[in-house]
């Protein structure tokens, strides 16, 4: 079966972001960029399905400027077979991304689409679900286990208070949670091989998708800093503060 994995290039998880002084956005100049961690998990899961003989081809897709090809090459070094780069300099909103991916699904006809549950920059947690709705396909979000059984995929999901397992009819959309797997490292010989794997460059127009703005970002601020703490003189005072001021017990 064919799997599509959609990946996003984002700021490296370890980088502490700084807000620009004009509050227009965060400052991304010369910061380290990487595969979104949840997307990396999605790539890993697809590779494991291929290694298990279940998947036959992994196509990795990314939307963004030229630089996203770096992450597509990384995904191919890890084990994806080919890549599609949909080039745009704008930062499309989740719904626009989902519309593009829906078109890619029309062309590629995959049985399974795996995405990260959210990107660690915009923290929206929307694209997978939107893609499933637009293509009228079942979804298994926040997956911590994925098993393909015949024409179905069993997805164990991380939900409030525990785990829930669903059976989805293929084709289906799966989004990954943190505990699904631990992504491998790219080996040098594979990094070299990945440079020769096919990478197709497209534009949103090629898929007949025009981006529409739904949400406007007015301003970005640094969150309020932690207040200096206070010292209390009794257990009663502590319990009172936790109950009535901090409201945590």
């Amino acid at each position: 079966m064919k799997i599509i994995v959609s990946v996003k290039r984002v700021i490296d998880y370890n980088v502490k972001v700084r807000v620009k002084s004009d509050n227009s956005d965060v400052d991304l100049s010369n910061v380290k960029m990487a595969l979104n961690p949840f997307c990396e998990i999605a790539v890993e899961e697809a590779i494991r399905l291929k290694e298990a003989g279940i998947a036959s081809e992994i196509v990795v897709v990314s939307i963004g400027p030229n630089a996203v090809q770096e992450q597509l090459r990384t995904a191919m070094a890890l084990g994806a077979d080919r890549a599609i780069h949909i080039e745009t300099d704008s930062q499309p909103e989740p719904l626009n991304v989902a519309k593009l991916l829906a078109k890619v699904m029309e062309v590629e006809a995959p049985e399974l689409v795996i995405l990260g549950k959210q990107s660690i920059d915009s923290d929206n947690n929307q694209v997978g679900q939107m893609l499933a709705a637009l293509t009228r396909r079942p979804q298994g979000t926040f997956a911590s286990k994925v098993t393909v059984e015949g024409g179905d995929v069993l997805v164990t999901r991380e939900v409030d208070g525990g785990l829930r397992t669903l059976s989805l009819t293929l084709p289906a959309i799966v989004t990954t949670d943190l505990r699904l797997n631990e992504p491998r490292y790219a080996k040098l010989p594979d990094i070299m091989k990945a440079k020769r794997k096919p990478l197709e460059v497209k534009t949103p127009a090629d898929f007949g998708v025009e981006f529409k703005q739904h949400i406007s970002q007015l301003k970005v601020e640094t969150p309020a800093q932690r207040q200096a703490g206070i010292k209390l003189d009794s257990v009663d005072a502590l319990i009172d503060k936790l109950k009535n001021e901090a409201k945590v017990i």
């Binding site: 990487a34 990396e40 890890l78």
Partner: peptide, 8 residues
């Protein structure tokens, strides 16, 4: 060799 993809 393996090359780290990210700081993580």
């Amino acid at each position: 060799a393996v090359v780290a993809n990210s700081d993580t």
